[in-house]
Design a protein around this nucleic acid. Structure first.
Length: 219
DNA sequence: TACATGATGCCCT
DNA sequence: GGGCATCATGTAG
């Protein structure tokens, strides 16, 4: 089940900008199973298993609902760029912009399945993993199941990553795909919001043990 | 200039 | 299952 980075190397290719120039709901669903990649001091790879769509100015729960401001301007820019914001005085959350210039919309990354650089991600989270091969799934899940957790695992901050191009080979933060096929997708309401809380815009890979929340189903 | 609050996670019961 | 840390942002005054 677990793949080494070298096994993925021959088949991976970056997503292009047209992938992101679509309705956030389509982008969100299609992002499941893709790979988030960080090339920095360490080489990090993790599979996207849970996301949420934020629709833009007409979505009361979206940051873009406030209009174009200094904070959220990436959402109004071209598609395929990183929107990072700081929340609850503690956490960073990572999004990708969707739709053409001038039309706001985005997808929030909520949970990842660690693929490569697992020891480095665990260290960034201050999680002790004595033996990677024997590590319990419950321990691996702590690394990146949740928006704040996965940002910490990938070293994502607003200062470092806001406005980065996910589709450029010159970027150290990219989204790529391999031959992985998603078998099933579950759709539920979004987490942790008050406005428009009933809309089913949260997507995750059915049965993935790396989805956020206690039962890995709902929360 | 002040204030209320949030696309959260951790720790304690 | 619930309280709380902690601060940037938006909005009201």
């Amino acid at each position: 089940m677990k793949k080494r980075a070298s096994e993925l190397g021959s088949t991976i290719q970056p997503l292009d900008r047209t992938f992101f120039r679509r309705d956030p709901r389509r982008v969100a669903r299609d992002l499941l199973g893709k790979i988030l990649l960080r090339e920095g001091e360490f080489h990090l790879m993790a599979r996207i298993v849970e996301v949420e769509a934020y629709l833009g100015e007409n979505d009361p729960a979206a940051h873009a609902a406030a209009g174009n401001t200094a904070r959220n301007s990436v959402l109004f820019g071209p598609p395929g760029y990183a929107y990072v914001y700081f929340i609850y005085g503690n956490h960073y959350c990572l999004n990708v912009s969707c739709l053409p210039v001038g039309v706001a919309g985005g997808v929030l990354f909520r949970a990842l399945e660690p693929v490569a650089g697992i020891a480095e991600m665990a260290a960034a989270r201050d999680i002790e993993i004595p033996d990677l091969d024997e590590a319990r799934p419950a321990l691996l899940k702590k690394i990146s199941s949740g928006p704040g957790r996965m940002s910490e695992a990938f070293g994502v901050t607003r200062e470092r990553d806001n406005g980065k191009d996910f589709t450029s080979t010159r970027s150290d933060l990219r989204i790529v795909e391999d031959d992985y096929r998603v078998r099933g997708v579950t759709v539920t309401p979004r987490i942790g919001i008050v406005k428009a809380a009933e809309r089913p815009l949260r997507y995750f890979i059915t049965g993935s043990p790396f989805v956020s929340g206690r039962k890995s189903q709902d929360r």
